[in-house]
Amino acid sequence: MNTAPLVSVRHLEKQFPVGEWRPFQPRESVKALDDVSFDIRKGETFGLVGESGCGKSTVARVMLGLIPPSGGQVHFDQHNIFNLDREALRLLRKRMQIIFQDPFSSLDPRKTIEKIVAEPLTVHRIGSVDERRSRVRELLGRVGLTPAAFNRYPHEFSGGQRQRIAIARALALDPDLIVCDEPVSALDVSIQAQVLNLLKQLQRDIGLTYLFISHDLSVVKHISDRVGVMYLGSIIEIAPVDDLFRRPMHPYTLSLMSALPVPDPRAQGRRVLLQGDVPNPIHPPDGCRFHTRCFMAERRCRTQRPGLKVWGEGHQVACHLADRSNHTLKGIMS
């Protein structure tokens, strides 16, 4: 695998104004992203996990240039996408595609499958009408759909079939990067496995790079090479997938791991239950964002915000007590 980063996200920030604007008064903002940094290497699947509302989908939309950032940089193949003019960004977007969570609302119900899958080719003026039709047939076959789907509408398909159509549309322009924004969360478990296996097969065949967003750790473990864990708009841990599941070092990651079901009735693991609710993102706590719910927090956690530090090969943790977390996990889970 080529280890050169295809995507480099550095100190990314995004704030959304809330409430009504009033003269001579500062307007409050939700800090959706706060100093987010990570790399995605060519040919890998980078998983991004965390609770609902932690900023996972916002990262994807800012990274693709769908919404403007409040600060930071995103380099795609060494191009800073925030410095590109409109035409240059339009050309670069052919190499970056997205698969949305809901395969029904992301497909136009008034268009046939042929027009839906061919739309990227039409927008970018690629090929003649006959060449586009041929390309659509090829793509539908690649994702496991028959030519009978050509002139049908989205409502005539199951959820899994609709997501395959969305995947075919994402492949139309031969992208390098595909952002998968919870692509299987709306599907039955058996269908989830089929779609995940399809994504892995396409990655092997075409050499795709994925940013895979999910709140389901089992799904992330199945498909990812490396994983980033988010909490309240920040990355708190990044590690190779096997290392993360073997030795989570942040207390929040530890709590997520403890919630995973173990298919062994003899296992005597204990849950790490978090106290309280996620803090208000308009007024996040000082110091470590997680200290209000952390069972290991000390005085410095309330005043000093930890940055990502390396704790082993490819393993980064934003925690003052990372060296203790792994020992605590062994005691809790044994």
Rank of each mutant, 00 (worst) to 15 (best):
V272S: 03
I67V: 15
V189H: 10
P281G: 01
R204T: 11
M296C: 05
R132D: 03
E114F: 14
S158G: 11
V227C: 02
Q97C: 11
L171E: 02
K56A: 04
L92G: 02
L89T: 02
H222V: 04
L48T: 01
Q73A: 14
F82S: 06
S218M: 11
Q316R: 14
A4H: 13
R246N: 13
D286R: 13
P175N: 10
I165V: 15
L140P: 03
P68N: 06
P69R: 13
V59R: 03
H11S: 15
M230E: 03
L6N: 00
V36Y: 01
I113G: 01
W311T: 01
R164Y: 10
P26I: 01
G276C: 12
L232R: 02
V74E: 03
L173K: 06
L66Y: 04
A186L: 11
N151Y: 13
F38G: 00
P248G: 15
I126W: 04
P154W: 00
V241W: 02
V123C: 11
P251I: 10
R299T: 15
P263A: 09
L48C: 03
E13A: 13
M333D: 01
N280G: 07
L308Q: 05
I99C: 08
L202Q: 07
G71K: 11
R95T: 09
H320W: 12
L177I: 08
L84C: 09
K14Q: 09
F290V: 03
E298F: 03
S57V: 07
K221Q: 15
M1R: 12
G312Q: 08
I165G: 00
A259E: 12
R27M: 13
P251A: 10
R95K: 15
I235N: 00
R90S: 15
I81W: 00
E131Y: 10
R299P: 00
D188H: 10
Y231Q: 08
R93G: 09
C319H: 05
D216A: 10
L273D: 11
I236Q: 00
H222I: 06
L121A: 02
P261T: 10
F212L: 11
L107F: 06
V189A: 14
G50A: 08
T328K: 06
L211Q: 02
L196Y: 07
V179K: 02
N151T: 08
F76K: 00
R270V: 09
V195K: 02
G314L: 07
Q194D: 09
E131C: 09
E13P: 00
R305S: 14
H222E: 12
L66W: 05
L256F: 02
C294F: 05
S190L: 13
A149V: 09
A170N: 05
P248H: 03
H250R: 07
K115F: 04
V129E: 12
P263Q: 10
A170F: 07
K56M: 04
L139T: 05
G307S: 13
P175E: 06
F100M: 09
I238C: 04
T45V: 14
I165N: 01
P147T: 10
R293L: 05
L107M: 07
